[in-house]
Design a protein around this nucleic acid. Structure first.
Length: 210
DNA sequence: CGCCAGATGCGCT
DNA sequence: GCGCATCTGGCGA
């Protein structure tokens, strides 16, 4: 198990240290474990406008201000659930987004949860895919990842390759911070462009309508 | 292959 | 009402 002390440092130092760790979910239908290959740091120190905690402990972001080692789960784009590990001292408002990993236990169950995934590396490639493969959802909000009896846990591990860093993905502010960390060469690292897809505007005002 | 746009609901202005 | 820490399938080269 990861210990509380390992999560107390600055979020941009803790985030790369989580690479290689395992996220494990025990459910009635079986166990799935994912070895983390890509994460992103979000800081609650007030300097990170991309963090959900940037506007204070709103109802959604309250978990980010709680004790380290809890799971911050949020609903994204009206469709997906994404998961973070809360880090830093209680009240810091910092968290590490779990962006991608490789399924190391329970591949059959992960495939059943993600029928659209073809290659194995796509099972947990991307933050919403990762939560799907692990069966993480709203019921896991604020779960204690450091409790050995919890159905969702974080186990220690080491990266299998050097760690690289670069801009975070899918955000439109603070894109200069190199707070995305990944295992060099990992096939499960997100292929998305830094900064996200540019927002498209209506191409034509005179487009015929039905 | 790569690029594109829709889906879909919540949080905050 | 607007924007969003995304994913997927469709379409064209």
């Amino acid at each position: 198990m990861v210990t509380r002390d390992e999560l107390l440092g600055p979020v941009d130092a803790v985030a790369p240290a989580l690479l290689g760790c395992w996220v494990v979910t025990d459910r009635p239908e079986g166990t799935v474990a994912v070895r983390l290959t890509e994460v992103e740091a979000y800081s609650g120190d007030g300097t990170d406008p991309a963090a959900h905690s940037h506007r204070g402990p709103t109802p959604r972001a309250a978990v980010m201000f709680g004790p380290p080692g809890r799971l911050y789960v949020y609903f994204s784009y009206g469709v997906h659930w994404c998961a973070n590990v809360v880090v830093g001292p209680e009240g810091a408002g910092s968290a590490v987004l779990l962006r991608a990993g490789e399924v190391v236990v329970g591949e059959e169950l992960a495939r059943a949860r993600r029928p659209s995934a073809r290659a194995a590396r796509d099972l947990a490639r991307g933050p919403a895919r990762l939560t799907q493969a692990l069966g993480i959802g709203p019921d896991d909000r604020n779960a204690d990842l450091l409790d050995a009896t919890s159905p969702v846990r974080l186990h220690t591990g080491d990266p299998a390759a050097p760690v690289e860093s670069g801009p975070r993905v899918g955000i439109s502010v603070a894109t200069e911070l190199p707070w995305r960390f990944w295992e060099s060469g990992a096939p499960s690292v997100s292929a998305f462009r830094p900064g996200g897809r540019p927002r498209s505007r209506p191409a034509r005002e005179d487009r015929p309508r039905e």
